[in-house]
Amino acid sequence: MSKAAVIILAGTDGHANLGRLVNGLETAKEFAENDDDEVELIFDGAGTQWIPELEDESNDHHDLYRAVRDDASACDYCSGAFGVDDAVNDAGIVRLDDHDGHPSVRSLVDDGYEVLTF
């Protein structure tokens, strides 16, 4: 059994960031498809900007996102800082504020998760 925390930090600008997003979603999907694994998908920093983009059914990666959406959460502070508060709320994505308004990476490590950043 593996435990992985996939953290999407890449913003929505540029082809390289799109590649990081897709690789992160594919990684989360691979863990989610294995019943013995646990996966947490966290949109943090500029990565929170992807939530409204991916919620749009016309987005090329909407189906990939939907495959892992149930495992997704977002940084509470960064959702506000990057102007996507309403979109995160509308999507029903869990907001994390464990450490000064941000997700606690230390807690993930303490719980045995391998932290993978994209």
Results as ranks from 00 to 15, higher is better:
D56E: 05
D85C: 09
S58W: 04
T48E: 13
R66A: 15
D71V: 15
D37I: 04
Q49W: 13
Y65F: 15
D86H: 11
D56K: 03
D56V: 03
I51H: 01
A72P: 05
W50I: 14
R66F: 14
F43S: 05
L41W: 11
V84D: 00
E55T: 04
C75G: 08
G45N: 10
D90R: 00
A81M: 12
A72T: 09
G92M: 01
N59P: 09
D86L: 09
V88A: 02
V84G: 04
Y77I: 02
S79A: 07
F82T: 04
E40R: 05
C78Y: 08
D60N: 12
T48I: 02
C78D: 00
D71L: 14
G83P: 00
D60C: 12
E53P: 05
V39I: 01
D90G: 10
I51Y: 06
F82D: 09
A87I: 09
C78T: 10
A81F: 13
D85N: 03
E40M: 08
E38L: 04
D71K: 13
P52V: 06
N89R: 13
E55P: 07
S58K: 02
G80T: 10
I51Q: 10
D63Y: 11
D44G: 13
G45A: 14
F82V: 08
A87G: 04
G92N: 05
Q49H: 14
A46I: 10
F43M: 06
E57S: 10
L41E: 13
D90P: 07
V88T: 00
D56L: 00
N89K: 12
C78L: 00
D90H: 03
D70G: 15
L41F: 12
H62R: 06
A74G: 02
A91F: 08
T48H: 06
S73R: 04
R66H: 15
Q49C: 11
Y77C: 06
N59V: 02
C75K: 11
V88W: 07
S58E: 02
P52Y: 10
V68I: 09
S73D: 01
A74M: 05
N59L: 01
D44I: 00
G45L: 07
S58R: 12
G80P: 03
A46T: 12
A74W: 01
E40A: 14
E40Q: 11
E40T: 13
D86V: 10
D44C: 11
Y77E: 07
D44E: 13
A67D: 08
Q49N: 11
A81S: 15
D56A: 01
A87Q: 00
F43V: 13
D37C: 10
D85T: 14
D37N: 11
E38Q: 10
G83K: 04
T48A: 13
G92H: 00
Q49R: 11
G80S: 00
D90N: 01
N59M: 03
E57Y: 10
A46P: 02
D60S: 14
F43W: 06
R66C: 15
L64A: 12
I51L: 06
G80K: 04
L64E: 15
A72Q: 06
Y65S: 15
I42C: 08
H61A: 14
D44W: 12
R69P: 10
E53C: 11
Q49G: 13
D56T: 01
C75W: 08
E57L: 03
G47V: 14
D44M: 12
D60K: 13
D76P: 05
G47C: 12
D86C: 09
D90A: 06
